[in-house]
Design a protein around this nucleic acid. Sequence first.
RNA 1: GCCGGGGUGGUGAAAUCGGUAUACACGUCAGACUUAAAAUCUGAUGACCGCAAGGUCGUGAGGGUUCGAGUCCCUCCCUCGGCACCA
Length: 944
Amino acid sequence: MKGNKNSSQLEVWDHTRIEAKWREVWSKASLYEPDLNSAKKPFYNLMMFPYPSAEGLHVGNMYAFCGSDIYGRFQRMKGNDVFEPIGLDGFGIHSENFALKIGEHPMELSKRTEANFYRQLHMIGNGFAWDEKLETYDPGYYRFTQWIFVQLFKSGLAYRGKAVVNWCPHCLTVLADEQVIKQNSKQTSNSNNQKSEVAAEVEVCERCGTEVERRELSQWFFRITNYAERLLENLDKIDWSEKVKVAQRNWIGKSDGAKVMFASDIESNALIEVFTTRPDTIYGVTFLVLAPEHPLVTTIIDKANGPLQQQIRDFVDYSLKKTEAERIGTKTEAKKGVKTQEKTGIFSGFFATNPLNGEKVPIYIADYVLMTYGTGAVMGVPAHDERDFLFAKKYELEIKPVILPKEEKWDFSHSAFTGEGVLANSGQFDGLTTGEGIQSVIKYIKENQIGAYFATWHLRDWIISRQRYWGPPIPMIYCERCAGDGKSWFTISGPVSTFPPASAQSGQKTNGNWLKSADLRAVGNPSSTATRDENLDWDHAGWYPVPEEDLPIELPFVKNFKPTGSGVSPLATNADFVNTKCPGCGGAAKRETDVSDTFLDSAWYFLRYPSVNVNSKFEIRNSKIPWDREVTRRWLPVDMYIGGAEHAVLHLLYSRFLTMVFYDLGLLEFEEPFSKFRAHGLLIKDGAKMSKSKGNVVNPDDYIRKFGADTLRCYLMFCGRFSQGGDFRDTGIEGMQRFLKRVWRLATNSKLQTTNSKINGEAERMMHKTIKKVTEDIESLDYNTAIAAMMEWVNFLEKKIEVKSEKSKVVSDKKAMNNELLTMNEIETLLLLLAPFAPYMTEELWQSIVKRQTPNAKRQKFESLHAQAWPEFDENKIKSDRTLLIVQVDGKMRDKVEVSVGLSKEEAEEAALKLEKVAKYLKNGKYRAIYVPSKLINFVTSNK
RNA sequence: GCCGGGGUGGUGAAAUCGGUAUACACGUCAGACUUAAAAUCUGAUGACCGCAAGGUCGUGAGGGUUCGAGUCCCUCCCUCGGCACCA
């Protein structure tokens, strides 16, 4: 029997009807809900959850989601229990700014955008586990965000400190360093009456693009710097996109070197600690430089005499102002760069002593030395550092070479030699190479207690507070009375070590040192503490975390949620919220009114998903922990995480940090949250970035309505390599619809043999070749070439049965002779391979053509295509006994000839020489042949 | 400046253990079907020369290695992203 019973219904591919039907059937059958408690082969397939923007789902979101879903569907068909959760990252400045713009309260706005976003996310055809959805603004969720803050506070990893911080004058809040991005803005400047383009770099807010300012404020910080070393080292152990690893390495920014103490005559015992990455150049020190903010500068001004005192004071004032000006209107000319930038400084009138050779060198104050890096003091080695060289030239300081280039001659009066070489003029270290010199000098200064190995980091502590409304209130209470008495949670609750480490209960080892009250910085890696927080005043007197049983501290409805700009959150205006009782003394106290950074909401959501509907039996201090230990053990870490590379040093770094903290607190059994991470590329439109200002943002709704989600999915994946991004063009999507229509027609074709007759020969080879290609390409996320391979196979199948000519009524005699029937095996395989890409259409065809049944929504159980086993390929069936031999003469392809596989060189030569196109080049008979078995033969006639 | 992507037809892009460059698709042109259009189908489509057979050139530029280079090496250019007065 051929064809199918209900072909009338199948003649038209009515994507809207089909997609709605299968959504309902799949949902009723809980097709995408794995058994979280007992799944045998758990596979956690995650895509970064979206901001539910009020404009709705962006086609770029859909691009990323579909790419992730294809991988998940593939894993499901490979026999895994796939968990693909979805939620909304709805708290935060982004949503709040939009609410402000349109004058709607975020609490109401979020309800609207949530409904719209979820509607759209239902449409795209992903196998989401909807039962476990979560929203970061749900009190049931942020209760735990607050709980996490409390745990960090109790562990000494959350502290309040005063520091110069980034301030966004538009968002009216502080920002973490990671949330400030450098932006190149081309500015035209008029110099010498000539207009020239100067590339200026400005620091802007990651959210709104406004240039940031600096303010000195007291803020809550997370001590991520304690984890710098582990965050860096673990990168080698995880399977992540290289570019994201590189970005994290850069951001963490470790520099190995040494701290060296220089004695000075500023006052007795005034040691100046310098940081250098080149201790081997220490004999070449001819001056010392302090940053204008360096603590000793105040002493210098105090002690200075005569006009010098005022000069130094003026210089320091000028430098600090200039730094500020630079930060606001940075005029660093990118092209010229660091090297030529003028170095300004002033002699302090004091001298320091080189601890290695006893030489006295002048101490300068200069603004090219930054207080925020290293120790804020630098040893000037003009012979071997470009900046020191420029400074020395300007102030006519001695240039003393101590490293000689191994081969060439170097003119030290002309420029600094910064490469590696051999030590000279360095006393006992003469003759050593740079590498040996560094080691020897470090050993020497350590033995003589004048210094030690030291690493400097770029990473800074994470500023958590935001002076905004739309976020989880930071669950802290401040009691003035206790502050006056020097009391805090730490003094009332006794040693922090009473906080029960879960690992102690489960008898498991943790990596971190457990806390003692004396060492509040113990969690993480104390040796990696960066410099800035050394200078923060961390005064926790008067501070108490909200008792855990009182969580969540719900965000109250505040009518005027507009940020105040005065350094406090709009919550401060709500007296009912602010006034509370002190957990320590029971007296009147005030709540913290800042909310936490939105990146804290998203730094742990993946831990929550599997436990959303599970009540954890595990408690800490009468408070349930945010995840169930059993479920978490089964599902985490995330097996495959897909997302944008723009979060390389934001979300991806914060998540790793928190996971390590939870591991150290014994709350988790792994320290890396995402075993495998792949960054997807950027989807652009007609060659240009999509942006609201350009008005070229594509909303998927219209396309889904017109072409169906299946077509859009396939088209998005066909635009280019998933890791590289793609270019969305309206003409391209029509081509993809043509392809799916052809698949539809092929499957519903009357020539479809319903008996399971065997296929063989070329047809079998094509099938196995396609299975192999599609399988391997999905594994490596090369979806574009997987689709191309299926297209090639469909082209082949159409030719095979001449389905096209049947329609057009033109049948060439030659082709009619080859007319074969399509087998059920081929159609089944095609539908299976295409299933992850076009889930709706393939399910419809599978049920009606293969299973010959059309389940309706009422049926609970059915055998979905998406629960079928992924087709296997047989390498032997891909091999052919005939092959095309490429024939070259002097490396140029002249002809090709079909031969049997495995032929000898002699046989290949013989076959090739029969070819006229080849023979004519070899008339004189002088040649030698190079043979690549069964592939290619190259006749070389020249004498080479 | 350092680090990491990338540069291939008219367009989106394939092909990197060195071995047919441009798969797949879009677009364009021609044709079939049609009163016509749409849809669908067939064919052509890197450039240049040529009626053709065929030939020459061709993967950002220039060198090199090799029988053979998009692929490896060297020197550059452009572009996107990360870091950067980082000592």
